[in-house]
């Protein structure tokens, strides 16, 4: 059954068709196809939890319509990463739901 996830970073939201059997790495590759940011320089979070590349979406319990936060690597040598930065309106919506 096909589903989709919403990958958010700053002012961008990507709607991606995914399968529960796909791995987190495959999602990053889909993001790479759209942003040209290498999968290695991406991190995906579900509810603040950093997702493991090798796991499938079913294993990390990513469901249809889930919101994943995307963060990029800032500096290769220092190994620093961006903070999660997704728009707050959605947080408001979730609080109401």
């Amino acid at each position: 059954m096909s589903m989709y996830v919403r990958v958010k970073r700053q002012k961008q939201i990507f709607f991606l068709h995914v399968e529960p059997s796909e791995t987190v790495l495959e999602i990053k590759q889909k993001v790479q196809a759209l942003t040209e940011k290498p999968a290695d320089d991406q991190r995906l979070f579900l509810d603040g939890l950093n997702l493991d590349d090798a796991k499938t979406l079913a294993e990390v319990k990513v469901e249809n319509d889930a919101v994943l936060a995307l963060a990029y690597k800032i500096d290769e040598e220092a190994g620093t990463w961006e903070e999660i930065d997704i728009h707050t309106i959605d947080t408001v919506d979730e609080a109401k739901a």
Partner: peptide, 17 residues
């Protein structure tokens, strides 16, 4: 506005599915 457009996009995918 952003929340409305997001809902609209969610609907597109819901409809397709």
């Amino acid at each position: 506005s952003t929340p409305i457009l997001e809902k609209v996009c969610q609907y597109f995918y819901y409809k397709l599915r």
